[in-house]
Amino acid sequence: MIDFHLDARSGLAPYLQLVQQVQQALRLGLLATGDQLPTVKEVVARLAINPNTVLKAYRELEHQGLVSPRPGVGTFVTRTLTDDSLAAHESLRTELVAWLARAQHAGLDPDSIEALFMTTFRKATEVTP
């Protein structure tokens, strides 16, 4: 089951943080069709947040067609966001780890690595429509 967390410094509304965490778990294959999301009571008991925040997040996920509520039972995943690319994740991760090691070896500190990665990433994704 997915374990939610909240980042007070993210600047993102709490309900959107919950939505993103579910989407990310779906993308990474950590949640699959038929899996149950934590109940509203479980989430508020863990995060000490307003129940309406959780309800809003679940409604948004429902609106996106990713989950559906079964009254009296809970909220269940109806669609995943993984595709055929999941199989490629592992080898890509290995290459990325190797690249990070080379960057460190070349003397880049974590901030420089992040800056280099993000600028390159942005440029590369700009070209592709």
């Binding site: 909240l6 007070a8 009571k41 000490a48 947040i49 307003n50 129940p51």
Partner: peptide
Amino acid sequence: LQSLMEFVAELEVSVLLSSHLLGDLERV
């Protein structure tokens, strides 16, 4: 606050609370 929010989820009760801790209030 966890207990209080559990009560809110369970009992459908309205809550009025005063606090200086704005970070807490933002969550609840």
